[in-house]
């Protein structure tokens, strides 16, 4: 009787299982999901000179509670050409940079997946290592290389290829170099994970049947790595759309990117509601790519489980 009761009591009490679920779940809910609701709320507020610098949506008057939603911030996004061209600029830079990463990263991932198993880990480590050195410092390195009197211009002049130094820093070229340099490992890793799982016998069979190397690549290898290509592209494209540091340090005043606009609205203009509206629109643009990435990520986990 008492034993059964104790067992029932223990089943009711929050046990280890409950604790394992609750702690990370509540943390991510409070610090990742809830903040988005607050951003959404503030994007409908008015800017005010106060602390915090926005108006309340709900005000209690003698007639009850009034809600004042303000769509002006979103109207700005459509009417002011600055925001529209910043969104388009980010999208263009992200797409071209993703393509460049794929162009450089695919051959590297391919070569690494075909090394001896013992050499693969070292080769991968060499790809990841630069991204462990501070991001800012790597961007700073490119300033030293791309400046008018920087390493690259000095080298080209010394080689007699150019007479006058080329203007590279503070141009879109510098932004592309910085983005590709920073995000290349994020492209290589999922591609490698995909390539290394391919069955080499398929390619062997194609070779035996007389296919040329490029035919084998286009018809056997490439179609089997679509998942890796999609995952790598999302890992590069999504964060690049919101990138702030690279356009700020390597780009010129005409390099419009939406992450930079958000930063300036927040820190320079202190307009929190407009910054929130910029963030909400950016999130809406990112929902589809993030969903694609999430599906890939959960499929990967399940594939390993199977």
């Amino acid at each position: 009787m008492t034993v059964a009761f104790a067992r029932r009591l223990r089943a009711r009490l929050p046990g280890a299982r409950w604790l394992v679920i609750a702690l990370p779940f509540l943390w991510m809910l409070l610090f990742f999901a809830v903040p988005f609701a607050i951003v959404l709320k503030i994007s409908f507020a008015d800017a005010q000179i106060a602390m915090p610098p926005y108006s309340e949506l709900l005000t209690r008057t003698e007639h009850g509670i009034t809600i004042s939603l303000n769509f002006r911030n979103y109207l700005y996004m459509v009417q002011d050409s600055l925001y529209v061209s910043a969104y388009l600029g980010s999208l263009k830079i992200a797409i071209i940079a993703t393509f460049l990463c794929l162009l450089i990263g695919y051959p590297m991932a391919y070569a690494i997946s075909r090394l001896e198993p013992a050499a693969r880990n070292v080769a991968l480590l060499l790809v990841i290592l630069p991204s462990w050195t501070a991001f800012l410092i790597r961007i700073y390195a490119w300033i030293g290389i791309l400046k008018n009197n920087g390493l690259l211009n000095n080298f080209l002049q010394w080689a007699g290829l150019i007479g006058e130094p080329l203007q590279l820093l503070h141009t879109p070229i510098a932004v592309y170099v910085g983005v590709v340099y920073t995000y290349l490992p994020f492209m290589i890793l999922p591609l490698y994970a995909n390539l290394v799982r391919l069955d080499p016998r398929l390619e062997e069979a194609a070779f035996d049947l007389g296919a040329r190397p490029w035919q084998v690549f286009l018809r056997i290898t490439l179609p089997r790595t679509v998942a890796g290509i999609v995952a790598g592209s999302m890992l590069v494209m999504i964060p690049v759309i919101g990138e702030f540091v690279i356009p700020e340090l390597l780009g010129g005043p005409d390099t419009l990117m939406i992450g930079k606009v958000l930063w300036e609205e927040f820190f320079n203009n202190r307009d929190w509601p407009v910054a929130s509206a910029v963030a909400i629109i950016m999130l809406l643009l990112l929902v589809i790519p993030i969903t694609i990435f999430h599906n890939y990520q959960s499929r990967e986990l399940e594939k390993e489980l199977a």
Binding site: I238, F244, G259, W263, S276, A279
Partner: peptide, 13 residues
């Protein structure tokens, strides 16, 4: 993959 400016802004708010 979340852009850092969004994470930063939302946490501050």
């Amino acid at each position: 993959v979340m852009p850092e400016v969004i994470t930063g802004l939302s946490l501050l708010l």
